[in-house]
Computed example of a mutant assay.
Amino acid sequence: MAMAFSSKLQLLFLISVSLIPISLCSNPNRPLSSFKTSTPDVHDLLPNYSLPKGLIPGNVKSYSLNSDSTFTIELTHECYVKFTDLVYYKTVLTGKLGDGEVSDVSGIEVKKLFAWLPITGILVDGSSIEFQVGFLSEKLPASMFQEIPTCRNKEFQQSLLASN
């Protein structure tokens, strides 16, 4: 009799343990990055949304992607990247991913003349990428963003200003 009870208890335990992943997946507010996935790097995730890997610098500490496609990317430190203009990445980047676009962007700024302007949206249009800064925009060749850019520190920005 004790063996039958023990076997039933083991079976009940196995069933309850096997249901834990189902209950975790049913929570739509749980970030997808908290699950084991085949894309551990945010740079590998971007092409799934028709976006190039090089939109985000290489110093990513962590990221989360929610079921509504909103994301948060945490960088190890703030940094500067020189494309055609100098771009500043804060330590936390947020936005919403769509097919070939990123909307509601925060945490990325571009230097235009003497002012830092926030990038609010990014659209990929075939061979070009349009960066939106409020009601203004600028298109750059998508080929500029195929490689993950190296993150530079504040001294890099200051050396660029001194050379101009």
Rank of each mutant, 00 (worst) to 15 (best):
D104H: 10
C79W: 07
S106M: 07
T70E: 04
G98H: 06
T84K: 15
Y89Q: 06
E101H: 11
K111E: 03
L93G: 06
F114T: 14
L75K: 06
K96N: 13
D104F: 09
D99T: 15
I73K: 05
L117S: 08
G107P: 02
K90H: 13
D104P: 00
G121L: 01
I108R: 02
E101L: 09
V87S: 02
L75C: 05
G107Q: 01
S69G: 00
C79P: 04
A115D: 14
S106R: 07
S69L: 11
G100V: 09
V102M: 08
L117I: 06
E78Q: 13
F83N: 13
G121P: 01
T70V: 02
G121W: 01
G100L: 13
T94E: 11
I119G: 00
G95D: 09
V102F: 02
D85K: 13
T72G: 05
W116I: 02
W116Y: 07
Y88Q: 09
F83Q: 12
K90T: 15
I73C: 04
F71P: 01
G121F: 00
D104R: 10
V110E: 04
W116Q: 05
K96C: 11
K111H: 09
S69T: 12
L117Q: 05
L93E: 07
I108S: 02
V105R: 01
F83R: 15
V110F: 00
K111A: 04
E74P: 00
T72W: 03
G98Q: 08
W116D: 06
S103D: 14
L97P: 01
T72Y: 01
S69Y: 13
P118N: 06
K111N: 11
I73P: 01
I119L: 12
I108Y: 05
W116A: 00
K96Q: 14
K111D: 01
A115V: 13
G95L: 04
V110L: 09
L97M: 08
Y88G: 02
D104K: 07
T76V: 13
Y88N: 11
T94V: 15
K112V: 11
L117F: 10
V81K: 08
V92I: 15
V92S: 13
G121R: 03
K82I: 08
V87L: 08
Y89A: 08
E78F: 00
S103N: 13
F114S: 12
T84L: 14
L117D: 00
K111Q: 10
E109V: 03
E78G: 08
T94K: 14
L113D: 15
T120M: 04
K90N: 13
V102G: 01
S103W: 00
L117N: 05
T84P: 12
T84Y: 14
V102I: 15
S106T: 09
T76M: 12
W116M: 07
E74C: 07
S106H: 05
S69P: 00
V102N: 03
E109W: 10
